[in-house]
Structure formats: structure tokens, C-alpha cells
Design a protein around this nucleic acid. Structure first.
Lengths: 196, 196
DNA sequence: AGTAAAACCGACTGATGGTCGGTAATTACC
DNA sequence: GGTAATTACCGACCATCAGTCGGTTTTACT
């Protein structure tokens, strides 16, 4: 019954899998549509039948990778108790994950380059950044930090985290760097904490 | 005497000027080398005689724009007295300038896309970010904030500022948004200030 | 003037994103 | 079950554009 749908799904997934591997290892610019088609054992026309442009393929890959990563982070953060502590733990996980080659390549390097900063920021914020405003609101509600407009502050912190992730990704001693930035981030967030 | 040098400089500048205008208005991808050559009233070969690649042209433009902007910011910041206050004022100027179309296009959109995040971050940090570590060191020296590793904290703040600038650039009511983010940034920095 | 070197020219090439007319598989309808 | 319509897929072809290269003009030096 759903034969056609299955067929479509299978091809689509083959393309996406191939694309993710290629984008992750060689980067967006160095990956051609012919490469993707060949790697997915499909003709170029098929790729264009499923995705309008090369950017569209990338966007789909980006979305998938982000989705996977955010799920991972959620699992980590859920283990913490304090809202601020969860924020910090999640951040550290984000560092560690994006520091690993392929994911960092897709999310931090090519992401903004291909999608455009605005769109990238928007999507990234939608996936990861949504957690920060929520955490801040909760923290204010709980009286942990001073009441103030949430959005601007959240944006600043997201920028800080992202920048740190990139800096991390570019360093040899990732573990150490991650710890360093996590500590700095913690001190920044803790500075906001009101004296009880 | 320096006729040859003058000739070279004039052509080079014509190319750079044309490129800056085109990159600023249409963006990097939508600007072709032929466009640049034509706009500079020069043959394509001449452009390649002066710059090895299209990226090289962009890098030169980027450098120039950054240099100009940083000089402007310096002038603004110098007017302030407190180190932290100067940091905040400079930040606000950065917001305002990058929010204006062409400069934002070059520095915030295409910059990372073309040069690659790592290189962009490095250059951007070199131009703008260098000020933050210096300001933080000074602030620690003066006992305004707690002593701690400077580099990680500076990186976080730079990321926060950049993110805010981008967010600003994407909004219609730039003045209002700039003020909002500046206030949030101020509260973040002020949170670090030690009680006297 | 004569020669060397540097600046400049613009037709050409190679690579690649995207198109399009056609074929094969699947589904809908009688 | 046959046939028409729809959907998936194919791969040769096209347009664009970064970058090349042999040739020409302008400048510098003797």
C-alpha cells in the first residue's frame, strides 16, 4: 500500500545519510551534488527531485543533526537539579559534542555560512537557545536572579556559549578547553545569582 | 618616480572601493569578479593581478572595513572614564554601526561565511575582541571585578556582543534594540563588579 | 633608443549547480 | 486485468562564474 511512500523515504534517507557524511567530513563547499548522488547510489536528478537546491539538502542535514544533538543534551541536563546547574551542564555537553569533527563542521562552520547568519541563528536558537530563556525565566521566578527582560539577556548568553563552542572546537586539548570555558560560563552565570 | 607604485595603488584602491560597495550591497555570493572588474573600470585580469582569489579581495575589504570601524569605536570609547563604562559604550557603538546595512553585511554575514568561522573569529577578535581582554585585565587590576582567567571570560563576552549585534541588525527598530541589548550587556558586566 | 619588467587585457577553460525531456515503476480507475 | 495518470528516477545538457594564460601596453632603467 504505502509502497511509493516507502520508496520515497528510502531514497530520501539514503541521500540525507550520504550528505551528512560528506558535509561532515569534507564540508559544504567541497561536496558536490554529484558526490552526494553517487554516494547515495542515485542519479543527480533524483536528488533534485527530493530537494530543490544544494542548500535545501544542507538545511535538512542541519536540522537532523541539531535534533539529535538537542535530544542528547536534554538527557544530560535532565539529570541536574538546580535550573542554573542544568544550564551549565547542558552547555558543557554542547561544547563536547560540537568539538567533535563532523557535528562541529555542520553546525558551527558551514551552518552560518550556508544558511546565512540570520537563518542559522534563528534555527540554532530554536533548537538550543529556547532552553536558555526558559531557564532564565525559571531562575527569576525562583528568585535566583534579578528580574529583567529575558530575551536580551538570553541572547547574550547564547552568543557567549556558541562563541565558546567554536573556540573549543578549534583547540587541540578539547577537554581542557571545555572545562575552562565551562568554568568561565559558570562564573558569569553565578555572578547573576542574587545573594540569598 | 613612484609612477608605477601610484598606478598600482590607484588600481588597487579602485578595485577595493568597487568591491566594498558591491559586497556591502549585494553580498559576497551575488557579486562576481566580472562585476567588480567592470565597476572598477578594469579588466578581470587586472583584478587577479592584484588579488589571488575572490576570497582575497573580500579579505582585504573586510580588513579595511574593520579597521575603519574600530577607529570609530575607539574615538567613542575614549570619551568614557571608567574601564567598564568604556567597554559598554564601545559595545553600543558596535551595535549601531554593524546594524547599518553594508557594514553588517560584510562583517557579520559574509565575514564568517567567506573566511571561515575560525579565521573570522580570529580577525574579528584581533580587531574588536582585543579590547575586551585588555579592559578585563584593567578591571581586575583595579579591583573592579574578581581575578580569574581572562581569555575564556573575554571570549564569552565577545560572543555575547557579536550575537547581540547580529540580533540588532535583524530588527527594524534598531535604536530600541540596541538600547535593550546594551542594557542587558551592562547588567551582565555589572554583575561581575565586586561590591566595594 | 632599446630593453627589461611590471601592469593590464580579455578570450578561453574547467568545474559545478541546476534543468529538462524522457523512461520506468506505482497507483487509480474502469 | 488492462489502461491512464501520477510519481520516482535518470543522465545528458546548459549557464554561470572563478580562475588561467598568452599577448599588449605602459613604465623604468641604461
Amino acid at each position: 500500500m504505502a509502497k511509493q511512500a516507502e520508496r520515497r523515504a528510502a531514497t530520501s534517507e539514503a541521500i540525507l545519510t550520504a550528505a551528512q557524511r560528506l558535509f561532515g567530513t569534507h564540508g559544504f563547499a567541497a561536496t558536490t551534488m554529484d558526490d552526494i548522488a553517487e554516494s547515495a547510489s542515485v542519479a543527480k536528478g533524483a536528488v533534485y527531485h527530493h530537494f530543490k537546491t544544494k542548500e535545501a539538502v544542507f538545511a535538512a542535514v542541519f536540522d537532523q543533526v541539531s535534533r539529535d544533538l538537542v535530544a542528547e543534551i536534554d538527557r544530560t541536563a535532565r539529570a541536574e537539579k538546580d535550573v542554573l546547574a542544568a544550564l551549565i551542564a547542558g552547555t558543557q555537553h554542547y561544547f563536547a559534542a560540537t568539538a567533535k569533527g563532523p557535528i562541529g563542521q555542520i553546525i558551527l562552520r558551514d551552518g552560518p555560512a550556508v544558511l546565512g547568519w540570520e537563518r542559522w541563528r534563528e534555527i540554532d536558537a530554536q533548537h538550543f537557545g529556547g532552553k536558555i530563556p526558559r531557564a532564565l525565566s525559571a531562575a527569576m521566578e525562583a528568585g535566583l536572579i534579578a528580574r529583567q527582560p529575558v530575551e536580551p539577556l538570553a541572547r547574550l548568553l547564547l552568543g557567549a556559549v556558541t562563541e565558546a563552542a567554536v573556540a573549543c572546537a578549534g583547540r587541540a586539548d578539547i577537554a581542557r578547553a571545555g572545562a575552562e570555558y565551562a568554568r568561565a560560563f559558570k562564573s558569569l552565570v553565578e555572578a547573576l545569582r542574587l545573594p540569598t
